[in-house]
Design a protein around this nucleic acid. Structure first.
Lengths: 231, 231
DNA sequence: CATAATAGGGAATGGTCATTCCCTATACCT
DNA sequence: AGGTATAGGGAATGACCATTCCCTATTATG
């Protein structure tokens, strides 16, 4: 989905980007049925998703406040002016990076779930995937949801709302898997789906904290223990 | 341990403070057996622990980077110069606040554990205590260990080491309680103490993240589910 | 009572950072 | 070709922030 090089036209005309306005003045993407209409003026040269992936990386490593515009220009390979052409301010860069990050993570989690045949097995794979992402160098890079919750949600209502929504979305995904497991017989009926899902969200978020703090995490062992919650 | 008012002499001569130098030029506390020797010069007027409690509050709410010296002077009720008299720099204030915070939290956790008669009950009370502290306005205030892990451990080896040590200490405390439970018969022998303890640390750290993000946490329900890990 | 030693407090300083400005470049349209 | 609209890039700007300086105050000692 993200290309390492910078194709000059591809991105400009398609608007494959996830959601809401990145841009100070966002044009309506398409008036009627034809979706591919190039907006007026000089087209953007850089690939937005590539640039955002690079911003994600910096924000994950340094957090919001410790990341300067200079850090972003270096990482995103854009000049100061270009960043401010593309985003209202640093806050908007973070928000766009956050969206990009959660979209990619959601994809990874769904595909991990898809590796299981029953509800129970799907949950096992989701948890395993979380442990893997919380471990080693990837884990030390950190998680934007956890980072946003800890560093920003008390100071910034917009980020707070996004973090809250993301956690709820993850939680209801897990709760859904639990109910699937109860339907297919792999998880006992007496398991409290919502409470267990909330606790599992705590586990996943805690894994990221512990992984960032460089405690080693053994996926098989930890998930093995955690699966008792579905007994 | 912390007095709301400011007794003028009490703190200066006793050095009840936890550990390592708060001060740019730390005097040796006592040469021989006599511990109470007032150091030369004008004695400090403010109570160090009270001031640190106020610093803890700001750092918990705003994190490290978003807290300015101005925020600290306002919260600690000290002038800029006085802060730099007492601490080398902002980093040193954070470290001292961190020590103070972990000492108090440790105390609270131990006393929660003491409310239980068996190993199993002690763990239940510890988890319940964590949920309570992660909830509501207290939870929104945040945790310095989680904050330190997320915001600083990758950038600041000193804080990183303290966070790591604190997590390990908490983990071995839990592991100890599990083994106590196995000794007193309240926890089955087949429970893997270390793995379960590590997972429980993930739960506690995750609770703080989720609580900071304003998801409601029901202590009884969550702990009820978590106790399955000891089955 | 002078001296040494440190605390209290606030003004001054130097650096950094987010943001803006401005000039150039590139696209489309008529 | 001229006009319009936006992107690229980097210098300029103004605010803020961590830290230092300096002057005063308070203790002990000789």
């Amino acid at each position: 989905m993200t290309s390492p090089s910078l194709p000059p036209i591809t991105t400009t005309c398609l608007y494959s980007e996830t959601s809401i306005p990145y841009y100070p003045a966002m044009q309506k993407t398409a008036r009627r049925s034809q979706a591919i209409v190039r907006p007026p003026g000089r087209p953007r040269e850089f690939d937005m998703d590539t640039a955002l992936d690079r911003a994600v990386r910096v924000f994950r490593e340094r957090g919001y406040h410790a990341t300067s515009i200079g850090d972003l220009t270096a990482a995103m390979r854009l000049a100061t002016g270009s960043i401010y052409k593309a985003f209202r301010d640093k806050h908007a860069v973070f928000l766009a990076a956050f969206e990009r990050y959660t979209a990619l993570r959601q994809e990874q989690t769904r595909s991990a779930a898809a590796r299981g045949a029953t509800g129970r097995e799907r949950i096992r794979h989701v948890l395993l995937s979380y442990v893997e992402h919380s471990q080693g160098s990837e884990g030390r890079r950190g998680c934007l949801v956890v980072g946003g919750a800890v560093e920003l949600s008390a100071l910034d209502p917009v980020v707070g709302a996004r973090v809250n929504a993301q956690l709820k979305s993850n939680e209801s995904f897990i709760a859904g898997l639990i109910r699937e497991g109860q339907a297919d017989g792999s998880i006992p009926r007496h398991v409290a789906a919502d409470d267990t899902a909330r606790l599992m969200i705590c586990i996943t978020q805690g894994l990221r904290v512990v992984g960032k703090a460089r405690l080693p995490l053994d996926g098989m062992r930890l998930v093995g223990v955690a699966m008792k919650l579905l007994a």
